[in-house]
Design a binder for these strands. Structure first.
Length: 463
DNA sequence: TCGCACCCCC
């Protein structure tokens, strides 16, 4: 996007965040000088991702009040994702029906989003149900969408459920190598490497051949399960039998060896890939840098970071976050802040994860004030705090129960609820205890009312 | 469909 467009986006995002009155917001947004496009709408929705109610309000104002602009299907997908994450299923279905009435057909992606949110909310059966009812919403199921629902279940570690569902429907959808790989990967995610192997064997019996992805999945599975020597043997076997091992294979091994402290072997593999003509990717560098930070020294990690710059690689936010975490861990906070500035210069963040890292280290060092300063700083950069940010800050305030801290914690709690995050019961109770112990009875009552409201009402955000 | 980070706390 151009600089002018970015400026417009920030200005609009701020306008939406600051507004307290729907009518005046409508007046500001429905204005002939603003040229609404799906790209602009989607960018703003992404910025508002950590303020779900505002995101939905914004989407709804254009939907209801704009005389000519019609949302795109992808914007609907974003809005549905936000509503589903808020567990506001009434709005999810309203939007789904609205899509159909506008003749924008919900896509397989739409259903994947809803299914994913259902599974995340602990409702995998609802996820299967929405998948099975896709055709009633004017969207046909095919092998791709079948594989997607399997993947959604597996990624949420509901592998047994995915496997049972798979066995029932694999005939109907003509399961392919992707379906089997997805299930095998699921078993690997829960460290059941033998089940993964069985799944792939069953695939072979059905006449399908494993591909490189199948092998990479098993390889990662061994390392994840702590079966390092099995992983290593598997890697050697891959090199011997299949000549086409790729950058993913190497990255898996570099990372797998590194996390168990085998830094020298990890480095050796990294060098070997260069010799064999397999070019490391940014992800490979990230894996190595992370491993050096955690198991070697941050100085060595930084020199690999500088090496990758010399070779012309463009570090991404993961690269920066890994280095920043390493520096924080070595209590080099100033250096960490310099890397944050570098991110700004490189036009890649800092993002909410970056802030969470440094806020966390400041808080752990007892410098809550600096943590709160960074919270301010991030909003000024249009980077909204997420659930983790609030949890980090609030829990740090219980190290010593200072009265002022308790009030700040209470205010943060109110803010997070306002933005659609559901604090855990423990968080509520700790803040209540803290306020009562420090003589803030009035504020405690307010928090208690909020808790009661949160637990009683089904989620439905007024649009 | 596979590789790299972040995160409440257990």
């Amino acid at each position: 996007m151009s600089t002018a467009a970015t400026a417009t986006t920030s200005a609009l995002t701020n306008l939406i965040l600051k507004s307290t009155n729907r009518q005046s917001l409508i007046k500001s947004l429905i204005c002939p000088t603003i040229h609404w496009t799906p790209l602009l709408v989607n960018t703003i929705l992404k910025h508002l991702w950590n303020h779900g109610p505002k995101a939905l309000q914004f989407f709804d104002i254009l939907l209801q009040n704009h005389p000519t602009y019609v949302h795109s299907a992808s914007s609907f997908d974003h809005a549905i994702d936000v509503a589903a994450r808020l567990r506001d299923y009434a709005t999810v279905f309203t939007l789904l029906h609205r899509m159909r009435s506008l003749r924008l057909h919900p896509t397989p992606k739409t259903f994947a989003i809803i299914a994913e949110r259902y599974v995340a909310a602990g409702k995998p059966d609802k996820a299967l149900k929405i998948f099975l009812s896709m055709h009633q919403h004017g969207c046909f199921q095919d092998l791709r969408s079948f594989n997607t629902i399997l993947d959604v279940l597996c990624k949420a570690k509901r592998v047994e459920k995915a496997w049972n569902f798979f066995k029932i429907l694999r005939g109907r959808f003509q399961a392919d190598v992707v379906s089997y790989n997805t299930i095998a990967n699921g078993w690997c995610l829960i460290k059941r490497t033998n089940k993964a192997l069985d799944t792939l064997k069953e695939m072979v019996e059905k006449g399908l051949s494993p591909n490189l992805t199948s092998y990479n999945i098993m390889l990662k599975g061994y390392f994840r399960a702590g079966q390092i020597e099995e992983g290593w043997k598997f890697f050697l076997e891959m090199k011997k039998r299949r000549c086409e091992i790729d950058v993913v294979t190497y990255t898996t091994v570099v990372h797998g060896l590194g996390v168990v402290g085998e830094v020298k072997r990890a480095r050796k593999v990294f060098n070997e890939m260069v010799d064999k003509g397999v070019l490391p990717s940014v992800a490979t560098y990230n894996a190595l840098i992370q491993v050096l930070c955690k198991k070697d020294s941050v100085e060595n990690a930084v020199s690999v970071f500088e090496e990758m710059l010399r070779k012309g690689y463009v570090p991404n936010s993961i690269t920066f976050n890994v280095v920043i975490r390493g520096l924080c861990h070595k209590e080099q906070m100033e250096k960490a802040m310099e890397y944050m500035d570098m991110m700004r210069d490189n036009d890649c963040g800092p993002n909410v994860q970056t802030y969470n890292i440094v806020i966390r280290y400041f808080c752990d060092a007892g410098e809550i004030g600096k943590g709160l300063e960074l919270l301010e700083k991030m909003s000024s950069e249009n980077c909204l705090p997420n659930l983790d940010t609030y949890n980090i800050l609030i829990s740090s305030m219980f190290v010593r129960k200072k009265s002022d801290d308790m009030v700040v914690a209470g205010k943060l709690l109110i803010e997070m609820v306002d933005r659609g995050f559901m604090p855990r019961r423990l968080t509520f109770n700790r803040i209540l205890d803290g306020l009562l112990l420090t003589g803030n009875q009035g504020f405690a009552k307010e928090i208690l009312r909020l808790q009661t409201k949160c637990s009683r009402l089904p989620r439905q955000f007024k649009l």
